[in-house]
């Protein structure tokens, strides 16, 4: 069973993601702010992280940077799910080591679920730019 960590502060988005991922047969952990991420990581190392960018306590960019600098977690695929859609923001996230970037309102959840499946099956390709 694959373990997915959802980092998202909006409850309704957490619910949508969790319901769909669980129905796919994955186990799910949730962090509602940027600091809780590391508690969850320590509890159980996930196979994939879905990361929002605007988060309480510590923003997603900093979380991503920390993950990519940590020897233990740096290889975990990170897919950004954010409603920040400026090119500069997307570029920054990819430069910090995000594997993928979805502007939530522009993509059906089905696409996100498929992307998760690709990464978990080892087929996920890292985007290098848009």
């Amino acid at each position: 069973m694959n373990h997915v960590l959802i980092v998202e502060d909006e409850d309704f988005l957490v619910r949508a993601l969790k319901d769909n991922l669980v129905s796919e047969g994955h186990s799910v952990a949730v962090a509602m702010d940027g600091e809780a991420v590391f508690d969850e990581l320590k509890k159980k190392k996930p196979n994939l992280i879905l990361l929002d960018l605007l988060l309480p306590k510590k923003n997603g960019f900093d979380v991503l940077k920390e993950i990519r600098q940590s020897p233990e977690w740096q290889l975990i695929p990170v897919v950004i799910l954010s409603n920040l859609g400026e090119d500069s923001e997307i570029k920054k996230a990819l430069e910090l080591g995000a594997n993928d970037y979805f502007v939530k309102s522009q993509h059906p959840i089905q696409e996100v679920i498929e992307k998760v499946r690709e990464y978990l099956e080892g087929k996920g390709s890292t985007k290098v730019g848009l």
Partner: peptide, 20 residues
């Protein structure tokens, strides 16, 4: 940036919950 985010978040929530 803020407006995009604030407007899109509820829209994406609705979208994903309907899909679910």
């Amino acid at each position: 940036s803020l407006a995009s985010h604030q407007l899109r978040t509820p829209l994406s929530g609705t979208k994903w919950l309907i899909e679910t």
